[in-house]
């Protein structure tokens, strides 16, 4: 029982980080209908920015928001200079539908190469601001530490913030309207191109946070080839698909579900099957519930 609760706690923490990555992917999908592989590169680059700021200032609480801003700026930059010209052309011929997806894969490769060029063999260090030692409950150490609580807290605050922005503000209304019906939105006076760039920016900030949290929750360091970031991108995608790719709430549910299932498999089955299981879940969801576990067939959620 004790072991099971610990497994759940580990799963929820990891899953909350996958949720953030899934949100980054869902936001881009909703605003421009692009499957954004570059999200992994944006998270990675922002984490390096965070590591540099942490090295200079010594404060995690300065490094995190700066990394988020860097992620937002980088993501908006990629949308504005690479995706927007492509999207304005795509759709005229069938093969051009694939251009944006291939472009994001290419951008991911370029970003990794650039990071390698800039940082070389140097590693970025994000040392956890809080203790990773588990709290003691009835004499035993549980898998909930001040650090894990902080991770959950940051994710929760961001989720609440995003929900408020999307449901309560004019910006949120513009973001939702532009993703559901770009033409009606333009006729209503919404500057859809600008709103799309903002959607990418928010996605970049979410991805940057996921990258930083993934690093402090893991080894505490990051390299341009970090396997942890490939995992983060893949798990983020799987979580987004589980949640039906359209919905922010779906992304959160997808991330937590995936995190918990993978933690259980890691604990009771074996580490070598974790990656395999993630893909198995992805394929099962695509076969059985192509609109996600909370999705309605043909329906779209705000």
């Amino acid at each position: 029982m004790f072991e099971f609760v610990n497994t759940l706690l580990i799963g929820i923490t990891a899953g909350s980080i996958y949720s953030l990555m899934a949100i980054a992917i869902v936001l881009v999908w909703r605003s421009t209908r692009v499957v954004n592989f570059a999200a992994g590169g944006i998270a990675l680059a922002s984490t390096f920015v965070g590591a540099t700021i942490l090295e200079t200032t010594g404060s995690f609480w300065i490094a995190l928001p700066v990394a988020m801003l860097a992620g937002a700026a980088l993501s908006a930059f990629i949308e504005y200079f690479f995706l927007r010209p492509l999207l304005h052309r795509s759709g005229e011929r069938t093969q051009e539908i694939f251009l944006p997806i291939i472009a994001t894969l290419g951008i991911l490769g370029v970003m990794k190469a650039l990071l390698h060029f800039i940082y070389g063999e140097k590693i970025g260090v994000i040392s956890p601001p809080l203790s990773d030692k588990g709290f003691i409950v009835s004499g035993e150490s549980i898998a909930l530490s001040p650090l894990r609580l902080m991770i959950l807290g940051i994710v929760l605050v961001l989720m609440i913030g995003l929900t408020l922005i999307f449901q309560r503000t004019n910006l949120g209304l513009s973001l939702r309207a532009a993703s559901f019906a770009p033409e009606i939105s333009r006729l209503s006076g919404i500057r859809v191109d600008l709103i799309r760039t903002l959607g990418w920016a928010i996605s970049g900030a979410a991805g940057a946070t996921a990258g930083i949290l993934q690093t402090v929750n893991g080894s505490g360091s990051v390299t341009p080839e970090a396997f942890e970031f490939s995992l983060l991108l893949v798990f983020g995608f799987v979580a987004a698909v589980i949640g039906g790719i359209e919905s922010l709430i779906g992304a959160v549910i997808g991330g937590l579900t995936l995190g918990i299932i993978l933690a259980i498999i890691l604990m009771y089955v074996g580490g070598s099957l974790v990656f395999f299981s993630a893909f198995l879940i992805l394929i099962l969801v695509l076969l059985l519930r192509p609109h996600g576990i909370i999705g309605v067939k043909g329906g779209r959620r705000a």
Partner: peptide, 9 residues
């Protein structure tokens, strides 16, 4: 929301 959309600008 549909109505508000028309006057956001």
């Amino acid at each position: 929301e549909n109505l508000d959309l028309g006057a956001l600008w």
